[in-house]
Design a protein around this nucleic acid. Structure first.
Lengths: 208, 208
DNA sequence: TTAATTTTCCCCTTTTAAGGGGATACCTAT
DNA sequence: ATAGGTATCCCCTTAAAAGGGGAAAATTAA
């Protein structure tokens, strides 16, 4: 019996997970956390096993919770289970110590298999996630903290002058950041840049 | 027993739906369609009842399927069940004849209640969807076909000149469309415009 | 303590977008 | 038939972004 802790705020998905795991005697559901606070409480009594971790949560991020879990030193494995297949998030999640990364369109079989594998310390990734990871090693687009900061302000419609005022730096500096953003992301202009930013998860869409 | 037809391509969500409906003797699951083709086939033998309809599907849109179902003249009710709460999609779906619109973070109780109500020809909407509908009547932002066309090309990074060439119209016309887009959406510049466009579902994000 | 990267700042020119107008032809639905 | 919106095209000016450099501090990592 592999103990499983589910972190998932969507009732329907949580229900689906419970359903596909409870039919088998292989897995023992330790509990369901619908937010970060609930997770931390449930995690205290979780000695070993696999954590199915959603990333976008009401009060915090699955990335933070993953770090928290890994830092505890307990023999646990974290499997990310989310709708987002952005390089950015995948990298953060793996850096945080997750062993596997599945998309929410995964089949029940895939999820069960991922849990089994995690128990044997073996990773598993959705097909699309694998592609992203391959591209990661190839020529990863790495934006600096400041660049992401500027990017988000651009997405809000601020001009370089306004951004400069907001960040207490010269407009010329913002100009540079903007130019580097276009260069790094390969975008032709602001419009394409923002499209890219939303696609890659640098700027959150209202629907994410 | 209310017959229910589920149209849902995410296995986990489908599993969740089956689980919350099969525990009760109130509902009879007629079948699960994971795409438009499967739906049309299952729908042929579906005489009456409620359809839980996802919007984004692999081969088609739930909006089209909803129109198809309503056009059949059968005594059926369509409930939209999706992650998207964009005004644009809500309007399209309701225009297509859906009676209710729920978001995928709905609770099992809410979903069961929505099905019951639909059986009595009564609508039900998620809280956030209600807000969107209220705003719809207030001051709906309605973009014309051509404007949406231009908007998508702007999101791809094309300049007005390039868009003009592509659409075989004058650059000045594209200029006008762009100005109207900024005006209608209340955006200050292209960056904010594209952010808005993705948020509202006019431009599809890779993750939608 | 180097080396590498990031952040900061500056020069220049050209292109594009934004902001302010207006106007005509074309659908489409009442 | 006429009104409302759409789509088209045109004028003007100013503001902002894009594209091309370069370079000195400040961090951060090796």
């Amino acid at each position: 019996m592999i103990p499983v802790l589910i972190v998932e705020d969507h009732p329907l998905v949580a229900e689906g997970l419970k359903s596909i795991l409870s039919n088998s005697s292989e897995f023992a559901i330790h509990g369901l956390a619908v937010n970060g606070a609930a997770f931390k409480q449930l995690f205290e009594t979780f000695k070993t096993g696999v954590i199915l971790m959603d990333i976008r949560l009401p009060d915090t991020s699955g990335i933070e919770l993953c770090k928290h879990a890994v830092a505890s030193g307990k023999p646990i494995k974290v499997i990310a289970l989310t709708t987002f297949n952005q390089q950015y998030l995948i990298k953060e999640m793996l850096d945080a110590g997750a062993i596997s990364y599945l998309l929410k369109n995964a089949t029940p079989d895939e999820i069960r298999e991922a849990i089994r594998l995690a128990g044997q310390n073996q990773p598993m990734f959705s097909k699309l996630v694998k592609q992203q990871i391959n591209q990661l090693s190839d020529k990863a687009i790495v934006l600096s903290k400041r660049e992401i900061e500027v990017l988000c302000l651009i997405a809000q419609g601020l001009t370089n002058t306004e951004i400069a005022e907001k960040l207490f730096i010269s407009q010329l500096t913002v100009d540079s950041h903007r130019k580097n953003l276009l260069l790094k992301t390969g975008s032709k202009n602001s419009a394409a840049l923002i499209k890219f930013a939303v696609d890659e998860g640098y700027v959150k869409s209202r629907n994410d």
